[in-house]
Design a protein around this nucleic acid. Structure first.
Length: 420
RNA sequence: GGAGAGAUGUCCGAGGGGUCGAAGGAGCACGAUUGGAAAUCGUGUGUACCUCAAAAGGGUACCGUGGGUUCAAAUCCCACUCUCUCCGCCA
């Protein structure tokens, strides 16, 4: 959520920034509602002040056993007026909040202008795309051939966009998860294992709701949702907290399964494990001092990249352009791994600085040296999507004889050098 | 799932319709004292919003959450959430 005062004071700037990200949200109503809200507050609080004063007089009179029937009658009428105004104020604030919830974050000035993902700007590369002296197979064919990825079984027991991992693939997925967690915890991230279900307030806090309800799995008969990413439970760990400045930045990493409806992506990435309703991910989350959050974004991105460097998988980092930055983000780097079956780089991590957008929604603050409370900046990034990493390993490390070389860093987790 | 108890500020804890933004204690900050510290004494110590050019000041709201009763609610009523104890069930 944006700062209401900032929006009202900078209507044109906000409109311009929203246009850059192709947002169609109309913010003219915001200013009107904000003004109406202020007028109502002035009115109703003036009446309440009077009411409180008279009530105190009544109390004093009662103590002296004096008569105060006339005052009580007068206040009774005033009470109704206050009630009516309060109701109007509540309605105005509800509408205002509803609107504010649908306004995306403002993008940082360093973000390149562009319409869609084709305008994203590559910032660096690691290694060159893998070359083969034979025809490489896509991971879904490797998996099915070896009997380690079973899509038919998943369809039978659940439905489309699910996968059953067998044997070496299951172990590989687990090995990669462990490599990620071990690497990140060695670099100062505290490991968190949160619930995979969260309540509605948490989903509102990080911005998944109310806008993206159709992408989330709600659990019937409860107020709970399946987590779409560990970002939700982990960021909400500090919802409503006032942190101490000396603890910043706070760095967490967390493995969770992630659940997404993938509404609107019918027909995309239908083969293999790239786009699933359930997938594993290790997430990095930071609560940072506002003065340093953009440096923290760089280091968080580097921390995520480190995994691909250890695995020796070719990747590139792109800076998302204004038209492609996600709803809550101010600036985002995507890390894209080379996937031979796609013949291109595919997103494996998205690292974002949300600045104070989530912190304002979730009310996460810190106390500075003057004792003032300020909103923290929140950041997160995949470190990394595990399923896509597994697919990238299977594809990039496949050999002509159908075996798969196990990347060196994974051997101690896999207990073997080659998947036969 | 059944029965009971509870939720108050950073923490402990009192208060059960008006003098309560809330006693008392601890903690923390500042000051005094000290060669320095401990101890002691004094002062201060929540958040959000409105008002104000700003500061000061003033106002409103907040005692788990949401409603209600009342001129007036931390206090009374209703619903919900969570925590604890006992019983049942259970990986």
């Amino acid at each position: 959520m944006l700062d209401l005062r900032f929006v009202c004071d900078n209507i044109d700037l906000v409109k311009e920034k929203l246009a850059k990200r192709n947002s169609k949200v109309d913010i003219t109503e915001v200013a009107e509602l904000a003004e109406k809200r202020r007028t109502l507050i002035r009115k109703v609080e003036g009446l309440k002040a009077e009411k409180n004063k008279v009530s105190a007089e009544i109390a004093a009179l009662k103590r002296q056993k004096a008569d105060c029937e006339d005052l009580i009658l007068k206040m009774r009428a005033e009470g109704e007026e206050i009630k009516a105004l309060d109701d109007e104020l509540t309605a105005t604030e509800d509408r205002l909040k509803e609107l504010m919830y649908t306004i995306p974050n403002l993008i940082d000035d360093s973000v390149p202008y562009g319409k869609d993902d084709s305008d994203n700007v590559e910032v660096r590369r690691f290694m060159e795309p893998t070359k083969f002296d034979f025809e490489p197979l896509p991971h879904w064919e490797i998996g099915e051939k070896k009997g380690i990825l079973n899509f038919a079984q998943a369809t039978k027991i659940t439905g489309s966009r699910f996968t059953v991992y067998h044997g070496a693939a299951a172990r590989l997925e687990r090995a990669i998860t462990n490599l990620m967690l071990d690497t990140h915890t060695a670099h100062g991230y505290e490991e968190i294992l949160p619930p995979f279900m969260v309540n509605r307030d948490s989903m509102l806090g990080t911005g998944q709701l109310p806008k993206f309800e159709e992408d989330m799995y709600a659990l019937k008969g409860t107020d709970y949702y399946l987590v779409p990413t560990a970002e939700v439970p982990v960021t909400n760990l500090h919802r409503g907290d006032i942190l101490s400045e000396k603890d910043l930045p706070i760095k967490y990493c967390a493995y969770t399964a992630c659940f997404r409806g993938e509404a609107g992506s019918a027909g995309r990435d239908t083969r293999g494990v790239i786009r699933q309703h359930q997938f594993n991910k290790v997430e990095l989350v930071k609560f940072a001092h506002p003065d340093h959050s953009f440096e923290e974004l760089e280091s968080l991105t580097n921390d995520a990249e480190r995994i691909l460097q250890l695995l020796k998988l070719p990747y590139r980092v792109v800076c998302l352009c204004s038209g492609d930055v996600g709803f809550s983000s101010c600036k985002t780097y995507d890390i894209e791994v080379w996937l031979p079956s796609y013949g291109r780089y595919v997103e494996i991590s998205s690292c974002s600085n949300f600045v104070d957008f989530q912190a304002r929604r979730a009310n996460i603050k810190f106390r500075d040296e003057k004792g003032k409370t300020r909103l923290v900046h929140t950041l997160n990034g995949s470190g990394l999507a595990v399923g896509r990493t597994t697919a990238a390993v299977l594809e990039n490390y496949q050999n002509a004889d159908g075996t798969i070389t196990v990347p060196e860093v994974l051997r101690k987790y896999m207990g073997c050098d080659v998947i036969e």
